[in-house]
């Protein structure tokens, strides 16, 4: 077990915690927090895939972009930008979902007077 595996283990642990909270908790706010934690776990995992030890930011200077070879050397020493772009998008989507869930929770509290999922039971069958 090398030290580089540790962040992946952190992502795994976050994922398990998030899933546990979503499945086991009855409080709406806690369920929302569980979804948020799960979201961060997947984002962290995605970000780690593009990470390179000691890599630089993937922005090439004009000198580095001068020829195909220098550019390849630069790219070999920089982190992968694609997962970063994906994570940004995924964070924005997660924000949208989170805002929607919170507003639903507020409306639910207005109607039912509680955040307890076990007492919000209109639908059966």
């Amino acid at each position: 077990m090398t030290l580089t595996a540790l962040p992946y283990l952190l992502a795994l642990a976050l994922m398990i915690i998030g899933l546990y909270v979503v499945v086991a908790k009855k409080n709406i706010i806690k369920i929302i927090l569980g979804v948020a934690i799960l979201d961060y776990a997947v984002n962290l995992f995605l970000l780690l895939l593009g990470y390179r030890d000691g890599g630089t930011a993937p922005i090439a200077s004009p000198q580095q972009a001068a020829s195909s070879d220098t550019l390849a050397t630069f790219a070999a020493g920089s982190v992968d930008p694609v997962p970063q772009a994906l994570v940004l998008t995924s964070i924005v989507i997660g924000l949208g979902c989170l805002a929607l869930m919170v507003s639903l929770a507020i409306r639910l509290h207005e109607k039912f007077g509680t955040f307890d999922m076990t007492r919000i039971r209109e639908l059966k069958g």
């Binding site: 899933l19 979804v35 979201d39 989507i93 869930m101 929770a105 409306r107 919000i120 209109e122 639908l123």
Partner: peptide, 21 residues
Amino acid sequence: VERAELEAAFKYVVLGSVSSL
């Protein structure tokens, strides 16, 4: 935005978010 709609939507959004992840 009545009781049943909100409850259904909340279940939907939680399960939908988890599946998206």
